[in-house]
Amino acid sequence: MRVRVRSRVSIIRTGGFAAVLLKIVRTESGRVSGRCAPTDVTDQATRPCEDYRTPLQNASGSTIGVVKMMRLLQAVGQNSLAAAAGVGDFAMFTSRAVAAVPATRHLGGRWVRAVHEQGVRCLPVVTIVGLFAGLVLGLQGYYVLARFGSEGLLGTFVSLTLTRELAPVLAALMIVGQAGSAISAEIGIHRNSEQIDALTTMGIDPIGYLITPRLFAALVVFPILTTVFTLVGLAGGYFSGSLLLGLDPGVYWSAVHSAVRPADLTECLLKATVFGLLTIAICCHSGFTTHRRLGVSGSRAVSLSTTRGVVLASITTLAADYLITSFLI
């Protein structure tokens, strides 16, 4: 069957729609790879580019729509496969970091340094954000509860909001912004300046040396900073509710005491631990794979890795928060 593309009508008349569609896709693929494609399905000889009009140029309407849809599906498929491969790679990376513990020498010293890097440096920002979060919760909560004559429940409102949701999530986002970005950039620069290759040639496992201490530091730092965030937030709520708006301090603190159950504290610390593990692992992985950014290198690759690490870690925090809450609630 010889099918020559002239118009949409002729395509339908010849009944060769599928063949032409196939040819369009092949032709477009050929154009992408820089080759001139034949105009005829059976004709394999190439023609000069200047004489050539692609079937897509000749065809129109629904044919073009179908081709675009196929391309869209192809792109979705490719991106889905890449995402699945990325998740698998990340899981392997994290597993290797955990498995490297027995073989890593002087892990304690590097762990202390990582705790300082993530914990001490993030303490001011977590404290400030926790204070303002508590202040705002106290103000908003007081006026909303006052409408129903329930100002006495302000302590319950502030404490449960902080322990169950705000403290783990906001503390994690602050640590990601402060320490996660620094970790991602530093490891990216290690990769760029061949320091990771240098570790490999010295017989040192770069994951054990660079990643493991940071991952285990996060397991300690995140719960501690989340606790600090909660305590400072409660103090902020007390400041705006009792000192500024006149709620009796005894009422506020007794509501806090009676509202927060051990299960709430467990949820708070569980979330902090999971967020710490996930976010620091994501930031480390992003920096460690800086060299895999196709088409970019040098400082641009480090910049992209850092941005990607922080964005992914932030989104993962919120997604993990939803999942954990839905299981525990």
């Binding site: 020498r105 002087h106 300046s193 061949e194 320091q195 290759d197 240098a198 040639t201 010295m202 017989g203 040192i204 040396y209």
Partner: peptide
């Protein structure tokens, strides 16, 4: 392996850079 860029750890001192492979291996 001597890298073209030297691949030295800039957060470690000269002595710590040299001691690193001995410490870890």
């Amino acid at each position: 392996y001597l890298f073209q860029s030297n691949a030295l750890f800039d957060s470690l001192t000269v002595l710590e850079n040299v001691a690193l492979p001995l410490e870890q291996t």
